[in-house]
């Protein structure tokens, strides 16, 4: 009947995709990705390229920029270390134990993502200000949080809590209890089971969660500026400095700082990807299921 047609189509038949619509859907996806994501990002690097290295260096190495980066990075590191450890603990409690209010706690973890950052910002100020509950308490101990470096660190910590928990949690849920039981029958103590059996399996997701928390903290703006005090050289974060340069129509300077901030976040994420790739290479397919999808997380910024 249609012998000649199918002979022709047979030439490419083995490479054919069975589920139809591949060309159309991929085409639309790529167009969208180019216009919405890649074009704006490449514009930033285009602007940087026009700037030239000497000018770039002059902007980046100015005292005020360096100070802003120092404040941003140190506070982000603080937030990351806290969230990595606290996130592990929180995930453990939620996955391994049953207790009243567990579902509420589980839902609360997402609050920092769901809450607009500006709201988080003024709520934190209200809490840690001289007249706030925490502020008054801490003032008695002569600790000042609002409008200091500590305020910035706390705001960053608050907004990145979910990363620490939500990256580790699904992996922890997928851990098989019988492996731990096997370790116990072989004479391992609880702490040894955690150290030698559980943590090695969690390690890749732990690293990934920490690096995502770090990237997010580097870029956090809304929550921080309310509590930071925004004093140049002291409590001014890099994102705010970009904003200030923009208000002065100093696009080159804004782009230089933004490009550096972006690169810093990307380098951390790429390093984390490589590290988790190595650490997870011998893990079962299931345990690293999330890793095949490097950044597909349960969390929702």
């Amino acid at each position: 009947m249609s012998t000649s047609i199918s002979h022709a189509s047979r030439q490419r038949s083995s490479a054919r995709r069975v589920i139809p619509g591949f060309g159309l859907t991929l085409g639309v996806t790529l167009l969208f990705v180019c216009l919405i994501i890649l074009l704006p990002l490449s514009a930033l690097f285009f602007q940087l390229g026009q700037l030239g290295f000497a000018d770039y260096w002059r902007i980046i190495s100015s005292d005020r920029t360096l100070a802003a980066f120092r404040v941003t990075i140190s506070a982000a590191l603080m937030a990351t270390v806290f969230n990595a450890c606290f996130g592990l603990l929180l995930a453990w409690v939620i996955v391994r134990y049953k207790f009243p209010g567990k579902r509420l706690l589980d839902a609360l973890i997402d609050l920092p993502f769901a809450l607009p950052t500006a709201v988080a910002g003024i709520a934190l100020v209200a809490l840690y200000d001289r007249n706030g509950w925490m502020g008054m308490l801490l003032a008695e101990m002569n600790i000042k949080v609002a409008y200091t470096w500590w305020g910035i660190a706390i705001a960053m910590t608050f907004t990145s809590v979910p990363f620490g928990v939500r990256t580790v949690q699904p992996v922890m849920e997928s851990l098989k209890l019988d492996i731990e039981e096997a370790a116990q029958t072989l004479g391992a103590r609880d702490i040894q089971v955690f150290r030698h059996i559980i943590f090695p399996q969690l390690w890749p997701s732990f690293i990934m969660g920490a690096s995502l928390a770090f990237a997010r903290s580097l870029g956090e703006f809304g929550a921080v500026i309310f509590i930071a005090g925004n004093m140049p050289y002291k409590t001014e974060i890099a994102s705010l400095l970009i904003m200030i340069r923009l208000d002065e129509y100093d696009f080159p300077a804004a782009s230089a700082i933004a490009g550096t901030l972006l690169l810093l976040a990307l380098v951390v994420l790429v390093l984390a990807n490589i590290a988790t790739g190595r650490a997870g290479r011998h893990l079962s397919r299931e345990a690293k299921g999330w890793q095949l999808q490097p950044c597909i997380l349960r969390c929702a910024p």
Partner: peptide
């Protein structure tokens, strides 16, 4: 079934060549 395609050879159903026919 037509859910994968062979690299070589032929499928004939009731005299009709269906090698490249969609599932």
């Amino acid at each position: 079934a037509g859910l994968q395609f062979a690299e070589g050879g032929r499928l004939v159903m009731e005299g009709e060549d269906i090698t490249g026919l969609e599932a």
